[in-house]
Structure formats: C-alpha cells, structure tokens
Design a protein around this nucleic acid. Structure first.
Ligand code: MN
Ligand code: MN
Ligand code: ZN
Ligand code: ZN
Lengths: 160, 160
DNA sequence: CTATTAAATAGGAATTATTCCTATTTGTCA
DNA sequence: TGACAAATAGGAATAATTCCTATTTAATAG
C-alpha cells in the first residue's frame, strides 16, 4: 500500500471543515485541491473551468459559493481590486500586491517593513483591525518596454 | 453683478478638460460639481441618482463613462474593494481606507507613517510605482457594539 | 448496515453591474 | 455661421453574481 502523495493530503482541510461544521463533499475537496495549486489570483470562473476538468458536472454556483465559504473560514482571501470580477488569493501568508495598470497583472511581494507597520492610534481607538494590506499601482517592466508606451503617472521615488 | 459662489467655481475643472482635449459639456460639469460634494465613496449608480435631480434626462452610461474619464485624468480615484460595484473617491489627497467587514462602511484615514513608507528595492527594480494605498480590514465600533456580535478574526496589536 | 435529516448541489432564472451600439445632438474652432 | 469630431441618450448586449428549488448526499444515531 502506497503512501498518498503530498498534494493529495487533505487532512488540514478536513480538520478545518469539521471545526466549522462543514460537510466534507467531493466538490469542496476538489476545489480545495486546485486552490492550493493556483499560483495566480483566480476568479470564480477560472476555478470553475479548472475544477470542471476533474469534476465535469460541478456547477458554477457551487464553485463560487464554496470559494466564498472558504473565505469565511480563512482558507482563502478575497483580494482588493478596482472592479472587475472578484479574485481569490490562496496565499494566506501576510503579503502585498503590485497591480500593473497597463496589463492588469497582479504580482505578490513580501516586505517586513510593510508587515511591521503599526496601526495609527486614532484607528485603534475606533476600529478593531484584523488585516492590513498594501497595494501598489504602476507599470510593470514588460509594459514599460512595449513600443509606444508613454508614461503618465508620477513615479514614487524613494529617498536615498 | 454678484461674484459666483465658491462651490460653482469650475475654473480648475475647465482648465483640466482643456489640457486633455475634453469638451466642456453641461453633463460633465454637473457630475464634477456633485463629485466635489460627495463625502463618501459613491458608485456610478449613486452619482447617477444624485445628478439626475438637476439633470433629469442624463443617462447612466454618461455618468459611468464620465467618472471613468475623470479617473483617467486624475480627477477621481477608483478605490480598492473586494468586489461589488466600482466605487469612486473624489478625495485625491494621499490617504488610506478602513473597511468594516460587518457593515461595509469605508472610512478615510490619514497617516504620515503610511505615506512615508518606502517602496521595497526589489519592487522599484521591476516596476514603476505610481501610487501606494494601505487598506485595513476589521470591525467598526458601531458593529462591535451590536447585540450578538461575536469576534472572529485576530486583531492586530501594536507593540507598545 | 439502514433510516433520518439537515446541508449541499445542479441547473436554471433572476438580478446587478458594466459595456457596447448607434442615431442624434452639441461644443469647438476656423 | 458651418463643418466636424466628440459626446450623449436610450436601449441592447454582455458579464458577474446571487437566488430559487427539486434532488442528492454526508453525517449521525439506532
Ligand atoms: Mn497574492
Ligand atoms: Mn477615501
Ligand atoms: Zn504590465
Ligand atoms: Zn461596521
């Protein structure tokens, strides 16, 4: 009898479902498995397309609803965007995003300085803060190099 | 002859339109005027409802398209959200947002510490950064006090 | 192992948000 | 004042999400 492959290890997922009284359905397991693989920040529709391959008659609603449920139990994040379809982030580590306003690419980055930022006192007084995320907007290298690209915004310069 | 009221002063708006070769239409002026009043972070539909009062047969498409145009010329921001309708921010000063995950309220706050944050070097290498926004998620005071409210997330604590 | 039951699902309809299309109007400029 | 490109209104089309409900199924207890 062979040991199950690492990627099939659903144990922590199953524990979490039990903790929140969620049934362990094959649909949820399939969505979870694909989610852990996802490297970008997929939409519900993108996840639907992927999961459909191994689960041909899963419905879009199930995928979407499940992703929202996963967000509620802290298994996935809903990321901040300027509109467009909702995007999910399977990386729950504390990290931040760069958005290219030209091609729409969303790139993860990690920064201790950002992570260690304190919450302003006047905010701590009025709100209980759970998460803090920094979003940078700008243009990626690839887009900068595109022929005919003309700079519009004013770049933020670090003091040296 | 009376001097025009302060709130009617469209001069800077008109200059900006000329700079970008945009026609000065009564629709655009009306939308601009209401935008400067807006204190929250309105959706296109909310702006449509407001502008309709003084401009009864303006179309939704015109309001939406105009707001997107205003965003392009830097007259308004599109704010970061976790889905739902697109929201505009007429406050172009450098500031940040707190989102209540319970009632959906989005509250402005100002922080020199956040404003002065440097961009990580490895980001500066690969991207040209135009803007930097911090978003805090949590629960507002009012929601905390609601009967039956139960805390779920883990609050960020500042080191003292 | 079987019956019970509440939760979850599939599939489609409804709703919401945004964009597109096009005939008509209008601001700008010569 | 006339020519013309840009902008608008109104409606259609599309995209994204949520709702509805009959059916299935995971979990539980006997
Ligand atoms: Mn990410
Ligand atoms: Mn704001
Ligand atoms: Zn890019
Ligand atoms: Zn609240």
């Amino acid at each position: 009898m062979q040991k199950q492959s690492v990627s099939d290890c659903l144990d922590p997922f199953i524990e979490l479902c039990k903790k929140f009284d969620l049934k362990i359905t094959p649909q949820r397991c399939a969505i979870y498995k694909e989610l852990t693989q996802a490297k970008n920040h997929p939409t519900a529709d993108e996840m639907f397309t992927i999961v459909k391959k191994e689960f041909p008659n899963i419905s879009y609603d199930t995928v979407n609803r499940t992703l929202l449920t996963f967000a509620e139990i802290g298994l996935v994040d809903v990321i901040l965007t300027k509109g467009g379809p909702r995007r999910f982030d399977p990386d729950m580590e504390n990290h931040h995003h760069f958005h290219c306003i030209h091609c729409g690419k969303i790139v993860d980055f990690y920064s201790d300085e950002f992570d260690n930022l304190g919450i302003p006192d006047h905010i701590q007084d009025d709100f209980t803060v759970y998460t803090k995320r920094v979003v940078l907007n700008g243009v990626c290298q690839k887009c900068r190099k595109k022929k005919g690209f003309r700079d519009h915004g004013i770049a933020i310069q670090n003091k040296k």
